[in-house]
Design a protein around this nucleic acid. Sequence first.
RNA 1: GGGCGAGUGGUGGAAUGGCAGACACGAAGGACUUAAAAUCCUUUGACCGUUAAAGGUUGUGUGGGUUCGACUCCCACCUCGCCCA
Length: 833
Amino acid sequence: MAKREYNFTDIEKRWQGFWEGCGLFHTDESSRKEKFYCLVMFPYPSGTLHVGHGRNYIIGDVVARYKIMKGYNVLSAIGWDAFGLPAENAAIKGGIHPAIWTKNNIKAMKRQLHRWGVGYDWNREITSCDPDYYKWTQWIFLKLYEHNLAYKKKAAVNWCPSCATVLANEQVVDGCCERCDTPVRQRDLEQWFFRISQYAQKLLDDISLLEGWPERVKTMQANWIGRSEGVRVDFKLENSGKALPCFTTRPDTLYGVTFVSLAPEHSIIEELISGTLQEKAVMDFVDRVRNQGIVERTAEATEKEGIFTGRYVINPVNNDKVPIWVANYVLMEYGTGAVMGVPAHDRRDFLFARKYQLPIKVVIQPKGEELRANTMKEAYVDNGIQVNSGNFDGMSNTEAIKKIAMHLEYKGLGTKTVTYRLRDWLISRQRYWGAPIPIVYCEKCGTLPVPESQLPVVLPETVEFKSHGMSPLAEVDSFINTNCPKCSGMARREIDTMDTFVDSSWYFLRYLSPKDDSQPFVTKKVNKWLPVDQYIGGVEHAILHLLYSRFITKALYDFRYINFKEPFQHLFTQGMIIKEGAKMSKSKGNVVSPDILIDKYGADTQRLYILFIGPPQKDAEWNDRGVVGAYRFLNRLWQKITDYEDVYAKVQRADIDMNKLSPAAKTLYRQTNQTIKKVTEDMETSWHFNTAIAAVMELLNNVDVFNVVIPSNAAEELNFNVFRHTMEITLLLMSPFTPHICEELWEAIGHKPSIFQQTWPAYDKNAIQEEVVEIVVQINSKVRGHLSVPIDVSNADLKRRVLSDERIAGFLNGKEVMDIVVVPKKLMNIVVK
RNA sequence: GGGCGAGUGGUGGAAUGGCAGACACGAAGGACUUAAAAUCCUUUGACCGUUAAAGGUUGUGUGGGUUCGACUCCCACCUCGCCCA
């Protein structure tokens, strides 16, 4: 018979066209099947994809195809997170408009996705830089504004004095501008914020609803929100008696306060120092520190610096008079911007006190030793017993935390308070390539939202990109000048655009009605399809993107647009693909292009290798040579099935009756059923695609030792049917991983396409049962022999057989048997002395 | 400094209390070929051992512990990675 080549190029093209034509991934929303929303994080169109990106989409495709075969109505869609800085940089450097650059990249990446054979409902494709999309991003801004969750305030930005421009954090390298190396300064600008802090507690509490999320990601979210319980203690200014509130999580150390320090931004400073001798020195210090970045100021390695204000406060619990300092490590954003200094029991306070010769007062003693202020080498931050603490002496400090807080509240000297590390979300970007913030400033009427009917506020196309100065939007008069929506008088538009994280915080709602121009999403549809059943993406988005999406979802829930509180039911974070010890990136020059590999081996080979490389949640090292292993396997599978291409139609199909099979056929039939079980478990429970594939490889190795002949009698027909059954199962099990070749072979073996209309195979419980098992015989836990016994052998019978075994008896000669441990169907351990 | 991962052959990895190294890569030897590629077969943790079979010892970062039995569970430590300071 003529051998047919495994011509992957033609095969892959053919089936990609077929799936497109038959609408395999087209989601029929009226279907009565149970829904399954499978979502991969939508890509930023940065240029071309490498195999590291491919892992994400291929995993998503495997899950989608598997769920289709399991009988779900699957929704799998994709779009483009298309606003952002790289496009604007390309415009500045290469003179190409961001819109063109983005469009070209989308085109190139779409082609790559198609070549991988990953399937989406392309009718639902969305692009966040499209006015049809960002109209609704602006709508979300308006809704947040309406509910007082969007507001404007002054906030520090990175400012390059030489370029006279605002820099994004990633444009600041070692505290300097990445372009001109000028030290970056902090400058206050009026900017828009989303009040995510108002949702801090809800975001924290509802982590418990995220059952299908990795623990690691949940912990990262909780840490980022950073709830801490403490007390706001009112210290009184010595001269005026005015309260200076300090937040502390350690009220047990209150008796050990020897100074109080203020953030340089604290509003009380001016009032404190005015007219004092220190006034000028303090103001100089404040100016200098405020120009340091926050990251730099609070870094462990940065020198703690401060200056005395010349003023004092009174400690409310013991009336100690303690000095007020201004310190670089205190932040206005956290707590009250004023902290009490307890050198004996806080590391930073200890260093600070030593540096400026401030007193150290021990108020907590560890068990079994006695700390002395003048001999301490470092702060003691652990638990112990209260000393020098008035009525609280002798109490454990954990007890004192509660008692002192109660005491303060009772006396009206403080309030129990909860604070969060989570800051409000700064969404203003002084950039062109983003969704314009829909706000108008009128001299008469003030700050006004753009009415919904006037959305979208469209980005002007013709702008000038310069490497210096403000956002290009600042110079487009036709954009800036507008009419006030209230009084129709002259008004000007907000020129800042939104952080791209706003675009990506709601896109998963848009897939349900991507073209609806009357509303951002259809409540009825999103309520039916969300939460997303399975979200798949990189762990680098474990904090911000997921937290912002959760916040927007919760806000929309509170505004009664949707009836679910969390957007993503299950989350899967895949590991990175590493090459030469580093993450693949263009700048490192270690990227592997999928196109070259597809040309050489085909998409199925590449998919198989990426899935086989290791457990998908772990990082994995890419090895170009490893790819051939996947290619060889597919070739063997191809050969095995096409060898009998003209036989399948001639051999009558028959149900397989275990009792009539030859021993070899029975073994193969059993192995086939065992493989179904193994692969299904790997798909359902752990997503260990690598071991699922290994199991199928093993099965094919077993087919190799099974003697297939073109049947000429009934017994041979039976054998052939067992072989055919095994190959059909192999194709079904492999189809989510390597869909093209499986479709082709499914047809070759005599079926009508598509294989994805088949249901996922179930295993025959009776068939997986072995008749004979091999028992490992150990003596003192060392393997000394193996024994084949019927599966249903009794323990007593097993012992008798083992002890009468010649070899085992030799080992036992002259030794006393102390104990025999039997693990049914597996092992027997004889303990001897 | 804190939190979370991880550490197994030459390599990617498998085994979650029961034969360590499945599956694959690479390597070595062989078959086919004028030759090469492809393909197929054999071997492949290390060490000792025999003409050959066998067989033995040792082995999952280090040190302890629990157990008849530990890559797996517990304690301490070392190294690397990620996130946060």
